[in-house]
Design a protein around this nucleic acid. Structure first.
Length: 555
RNA sequence: GCGCCCGUAGCUCAGCUGGAUAGAGCGCUGGACUUCGAAUCCAUAGGUCGGGGGUUCGAAUCCCUCCGGGCGCGCCA
């Protein structure tokens, strides 16, 4: 619809120029936008204002000329010049009605777009170390990453969701040590439990399990043999738990990628060697450094320490160059905000490997502030006391948790109140939106019962021309805008755009519902309205799907 | 000190690739269920868009600066 309006404006401008009313045929960047107020029409163009400089005329005058040069169209009720020089378009009701048919016909694909033109995009998210269960922060990252993936996919990108398993390095070793010490403790030996070891109860469980599996003599194994065994066992168990928790949270991955595999396949060494040959990695004070400064970082970064051990950065370089070799046009990493200092160095590695900076983006998710009834929940990772993602899903449910995580822009910190997320009332936005879906299902069921329609789902509207109430037109206009919101959400990588849209649509529906009865004595009108509410139901479902939230038929 | 994010109604936040009269939820006050699901709706009140400069026909939106809050600045991960 917007493109149609744009063409009309452009045609009018050309026509006015040819007739000599406008001195220039230059066309600046102009926009067709939707005004905030109904009195300003359905669409407006700022052509006159942005052309004022080129045409050397007052915006209002240009607007008047354009309006008088415009051909009439049957779907345009009237055009007006208003404010500083806006041209406002008022559409006829019948211009909007076909939207309902489109929704019913396109069904689960309504709102989908081909803006991505099947470009291959990888979204990597969560990627928590398998050293403990996922916590609230991971939950937000998981919700964001999964949803961004869904949205990009819906917008026509070829998306792969990936989890990077940090199953190598010192943390894993520490995990092994932690389990080993607990195991020795259980075997009755004197131990000193170091400050930097993992203190959670789950560590003791693993020690217990291992003792049962390996037998009591395992406690006599020498440390160098035992710790890797403990580490592998614990990491495997934890990863299993992470997979389960994510699955219960409605998050699935296309691939689980092991950091260790990069070492095993020699990719880390190969990457270091390659950049060394290019002079991008050099030696200093016994360590190997990557010239990230050349790419805008504050200082160069170590990839191999003087003790011969690689840093995290080394495998990250190998990993990120490998991603593009797999054929992705674009790579998106979802990180916690506390990692923002790493963006430049990874970006440096990406650019150094011959990719464009635009092919790499990082979504930084700000921290979650967990509350219960308005009061902060005390958490301490060190002491092993924290609320896990599983705790949250168990307590408030998957849908409420995901909706809450996606309700705000990830650029802002998020207050997550467990009490609020649990409430089944209007304080809790998830039910507000889901209620629309359930309510409409109820209406459709009743209509079937009364024999007005054959089934609660159908592909074609009936007598849409009867939809003439202002609330009905408003609903249709909101429905028509879904695709645009999907594209905006995909462009900005911001899922909360969909959240906001759903809240707007839900509010419009509830308002309509309370003012007008769908099922009335007038069967024809009833069928028209049923077509409309079914369209609303489908769009609500499509939107919720993008956020990974279910659309219940009953609540 | 440097970097990233944030500052909009009493509270939590949308709006930020510049547009007309800055929105929503909660909370406050008062209303609406013999009628399709009241997990809903309607009405009223509430604002120097942190302060100050600048760019522009036009700034919550862009630039500079200051203030306030969160996070990060290792040959840790």
């Amino acid at each position: 619809m917007k493109t149609k309006i744009k063409q009309i404006v452009l045609a009018a401008a050309r026509c006015a120029f040819e007739k000599g009313f406008l001195p220039s045929d230059q066309v600046p960047d102009m926009e067709i936008e939707e005004p905030k107020h109904d009195s300003q029409g359905d669409f407006s163009s700022n052509f006159a204002m942005v052309s004022a400089g080129i045409q050397k005329m007052a915006p209002k005058k240009i607007a008047d000329i354009l309006v008088s040069s415009m051909e009439s169209h049957d779907f345009i009720e009237k055009t007006e010049v208003a404010g500083p020089g806006f041209i406002n378009f008022f559409l006829t009701n019948s211009a909007w009605h076909p939207v309902v048919d489109q929704i019913l016909a396109q069904d689960t694909r309504f709102g989908a777009s081909d803006m991505g033109s099947r470009q291959r995009v990888q979204v990597e998210f969560v990627s928590a170390n398998p050293t403990g269960p996922l916590h609230v922060g991971h939950g937000r990252g998981a919700a964001v990453g999964d949803s961004v993936g869904n949205i990009l996919s819906f917008a026509g990108f070829d998306v792969q969701k990936e989890y990077y398993i940090n199953d190598s390095g010192r943390q894993i070793r520490t995990l092994g040590t932690s389990v080993w010490l607990r195991l020795l403790e259980m075997a009755g030996k004197e131990i000193v439990f170091p400050e930097d070891c993992y203190k959670g109860e789950y560590i003791k469980e693993f020690a217990q399990n291992l003792l049962e599996i390996e037998g009591k003599t395992f406690a006599d194994t020498d440390e160098e043999t035992a710790i890797p065994v403990c580490a592998k066992f614990a990491a495997g168990k934890i990863l299993e738990g992470i997979k389960t928790d994510l699955s219960d949270f409605g998050v699935s991955f296309d691939q689980w990628f092991s950091e260790q595999s990069l070492y095993d396949s020699g990719r880390v060494d190969a990457a270091i060697q390659k950049f060394r040959d290019q002079g991008l990695i050099y030696e200093d004070a016994g360590a190997l450094w990557f010239r990230t400064e050349d790419f805008g970082d504050e200082k160069n970064r170590v990839v191999v320490r003087n003790n011969g051990l690689t840093t995290y950065f080394a495998s990250d370089i190998a990993y990120h160059t490998e991603k593009y070799e797999r054929g992705f046009d674009r790579v998106i990493d979802v990180w916690g905000a506390d990692h923002h200092g790493y963006i430049k160095r990874i970006d440096a590695a990406v650019v150094a490997s011959g990719r464009k900076s635009a092919q790499f983006s990082v979504i930084l998710v700000q921290l979650v502030n967990l509350l219960r009834g308005g009061k902060p929940v005390q958490m301490s990772t060190r002491a092993g006391q924290f609320v896990t993602l599983k705790d949250i899903v168990d307590e408030v449910g998957k849908d409420a948790a995901r909706f809450m995580f996606l309700s705000r822009s990830y650029d802002s910190g998020l207050d997550f109140d467990l009490e609020l997320a649990k409430q089944k009332n209007s304080d809790n936005p998830v039910y507000y939106v889901q209620y629309v879906h359930a309510r409409i299902t109820g209406i459709l069921l009743k209509a079937v019962e009364e024999g007005v329609i054959d089934a609660i789902d159908f592909k074609k509207g009936d007598r849409l021309d009867l939809l003439a109430e202002p609330e009905e037109l408003k609903l249709i206009k909101i429905l028509a805008g879904f695709g645009e919101q999907v594209e905006k959400s995909a462009e900005t990588l911001h899922p909360h755009v969909i959240f906001t849209y759903l809240m707007t649509l839900a509010a419009a529906f509830h308002g309509y519902y309370n003012k007008h009865k769908v099922i009335t004595e007038d069967k024809t009108l009833t069928r028209a309205r049923l077509s409309l509410v079914l369209a609303v139901k489908k769009v609500i479902r499509n939107g919720l799907f993008l956020l990974g939230v279910s659309a219940p038929e009953r609540m």
